[in-house]
């Protein structure tokens, strides 16, 4: 299971990778913004995406829209500090499958990933 992590914070990417490794998902690819995320996705093999919202170049919402235009089924989990109800709804409307507000516990991330992967 290869998971793509898109977040401009290298600290946050490491925290997510650590959590994923602990729960048995060791194969990850990283990108620091939406544009780079699309490139990594284009290289193939990615089965799930974890993305931040607020990023330079291309933000998470634009990224999700771009991904959904080419891949309607890949599971996408948004992990962000944006906690307003209208933000969550906008992300879900764009095609995000589930939503985690930062800061999160590893248990929450695990629960969301497992619910997405069925």
């Amino acid at each position: 299971m290869k998971i793509l992590i898109v977040d401009d914070s290298s600290t946050m990417r490491r925290i997510i990778i650590n959590t994923l490794t602990r729960i048995g998902y060791g194969e990850v690819v990283e990108a620091e913004h939406g544009k780079a995320g699309l490139e990594k996705l284009g290289q193939g093999g990615v089965e799930m995406i974890i993305t931040d919202w607020n990023m330079p170049e291309m933000d998470g919402l634009e990224f999700v829209n771009a991904v959904r235009a080419q891949n309607p089924s890949i599971p996408i989990l948004m992990v962000t500090t944006n906690a307003a109800k209208e933000d969550i709804v906008a992300a879900l409307q764009a095609g995000v499958n589930n939503y985690v507000v930062k800061p999160f516990t590893p248990e929450t991330l695990k629960e969301k990933i497992e619910s997405l992967l069925g």
Partner: peptide, 22 residues
């Protein structure tokens, strides 16, 4: 203009403060 969080001011450092809401 960069994409910034509108709710970051209220964001604390305790994990899962807003999990139930989300």
């Amino acid at each position: 203009a960069p994409s910034i969080s509108r709710t970051i001011v209220q964001t604390g450092t305790t994990p899962d403060e807003r999990k139930a809401h989300a």
